[in-house]
């Protein structure tokens, strides 16, 4: 089975999640647990860095959808950054860029959070 890892970095009020490997139906619960943990702690400013992600399936995309409503109603957001073109293509096809901030670089996203 393909592997998946999440690591976390905190920058001010923003929690940055670095996701790595394959995000699919089997590994999605790991990311879900991670985000759930942040939400439970009242952390609603979440940036997900896709730099090392190799693959995402529809179940992986679903993770963000599961939280976005709650996080936005709490004044926060999930922003996504550093996607490779293949992964961006998946998001783009489904129309995610209309609904989510998807940024080229982590820094851009941080700036956007703080503005």
């Amino acid at each position: 089975m393909e592997s998946f890892e999440v690591s976390k970095r905190v920058e001010g009020k923003i929690n940055i999640l670095y996701i790595k490997g394959y995000l699919d139906a089997h590994t999605a619960p790991m990311l879900e647990d991670e985000i759930q943990g942040l939400v439970d702690n009242g952390e609603f400013q979440i940036l997900v860095n896709f730099k090392d992600l190799l693959y995402i399936s529809s179940a992986g995309l679903g993770v963000f959808m599961g939280f976005i409503e709650n996080i936005r109603s709490n004044g926060g957001d999930i922003k996504l950054s550093n996607m490779n073109s293949k992964i961006f293509r998946v998001f783009d096809l489904l129309g995610f860029p209309t609904l989510y901030d998807i940024l080229e670089e982590e820094q851009e996203a941080l700036t956007k959070f703080n503005s």
Binding site: M65, L93, L94, G95, T98, L99
Partner: peptide, 19 residues
């Protein structure tokens, strides 16, 4: 051919219709 459009169930309706 790839006209713009969101997947069903992503948005309550406003953006979906717009896009």
């Amino acid at each position: 051919i790839e006209p713009a459009g969101l997947a069903l169930g992503l948005d309550s309706g406003e953006y979906f219709k717009k896009t």
